[in-house]
Design a protein around this nucleic acid. Structure first.
Lengths: 225, 225
DNA sequence: GATTGAAACGAACATTTGTTTTAATCGAGC
DNA sequence: GCTCGATTAAAACAAATGTTCGTTTCAATC
């Protein structure tokens, strides 16, 4: 029946997501996937044709789930700093929040190490919108004479910081020790990256607390020296 | 003969490095490796025992090659900013210089996405020294009251920026287009990351050119608001 | 109530792949 | 010149794996 079919299809997608993220495309076995999904070995070929098309559907599925957490809609007149903080926080939550299923971003990490043709176009359509949103915020945040290239580089510097705490997790954890790493929660990392980046962009946070920007200056800030 | 043996052993290591980096451990086949190395299929098992031990040796080999490009030795009294720029430049060269064999860092990227037990300890011993060097530079570069955690976070922000231009290359290239991406050479990225990070750390670069720091201040620099 | 079609199942197939085995080759030392 | 150990070459093996096939189940439809 349709309900049953959609159910196993869905279970296959979820199970395959886990396994692909855990082992990678090649190392993941159809048997493992079907086993976790509680489905028959032939279910993959029946529902998706073959292993590769299952993989594509998994990525699409992950993409669709990623859309669920949309970027915030700011009322007009929202301070760029507030937008910026929300943006960084949003990205870190998507990357690090343990309540989110882990395999979405893990799959992305894998695609970065070895981009597959089917997935590249999808990653593109998934990432670009967020990237362009960041650029819009940066236009408001950086001095007006900033070149487009400088703005692009700044955007990558910001995304790179966020991503490293996810992709480089095994390294970071080892370097600072488990105890300190446990304190690297979303709030603290948001605070650090926002502070670090705003200073880099020529904006200045109040010395004490970063969550309540007390000024809208920082746009035309140009240091002489 | 010994000379012949060492030769094929070495060819195997090189070829295996390429293939492992390209395909990943599982997807890489012994046949492909031996084919590229111009060696017989049984050569891997003869010289290394099995595929996994070959992999370990490959990583060790890559590690050894990485050591070849050592960090610069600065004479005492060298300005921290100069050290910092050298450090970033050094890291970017290792990551991006097209003259360096590409598979070293690609293997690292793969180990980050899926750290293997054998390699974790090695990555550790490979990375920590460089990380501690960066921390030493940051001690000189950041205000003296900076906490250790804040310094750690800053270090990761810096490394994350560098790494993203390597790991996230397929994404970055797509986002800005091939033409602009071609202009992202080591010199420009060094310049950007150094400028971005020094500003974030509370230090300020001269507005015009970043390669010749004209001041040793920037340590005690604290902007009010 | 017979029929149809989707869905699931179990077994088998063909291929790939790491590994082993066995024979051949080559060079050095007596 | 011959032997012995090290190395290479070719073939074969056994396990794993993606895929396919024939059958069965079961609800919906006529």
């Amino acid at each position: 029946m349709a309900a049953q079919a959609d159910d196993t299809r869905h279970r296959l997608l979820e199970a395959a997501g886990e396994v692909f993220a855990e082992k990678g495309f090649q190392a993941a076995t159809v048997r493992d996937i079907c086993g976790r999904a509680g489905a028959n070995l032939a279910a993959v070929n029946y529902h998706f044709g073959d292993k590769e098309r299952l993989y594509v559907e998994v990525v699409k599925h992950a993409h669709h789930c990623g859309e669920e957490i949309a970027y915030p809609q700011w009322p007009p007149g929202t301070r760029p700093r507030k937008k910026f903080r929300d943006y960084v926080s949003h990205m870190l939550i998507r990357l690090l929040d343990p309540r989110r299923p882990a395999w979405h971003t893990q799959l992305m990490a894998r695609e970065m190490a070895q981009p597959s043709a089917a997935c590249a176009a999808l990653v593109e359509s998934y990432i670009r919108s967020g990237h362009e949103l960041l650029e819009e915020i940066l236009v408001e945040l950086m001095p007006p004479e900033t070149s487009a290239i400088a703005r692009h580089l700044a955007a990558f510097s910001i995304v790179g910081q966020c991503l490293y705490f996810r992709i480089g997790r095994p390294i970071v954890e080892r370097l600072v020790g488990e105890d300190e790493f446990r304190t690297y929660d979303v709030a603290r990392l948001t605070d650090h990256i926002v502070r670090f980046s705003l200073a880099a962009l020529g904006s200045r946070q109040p010395a004490g607390e970063a969550s309540q920007p007390a000024s809208t200056a920082g746009r035309s800030r140009e240091v002489i020296r």
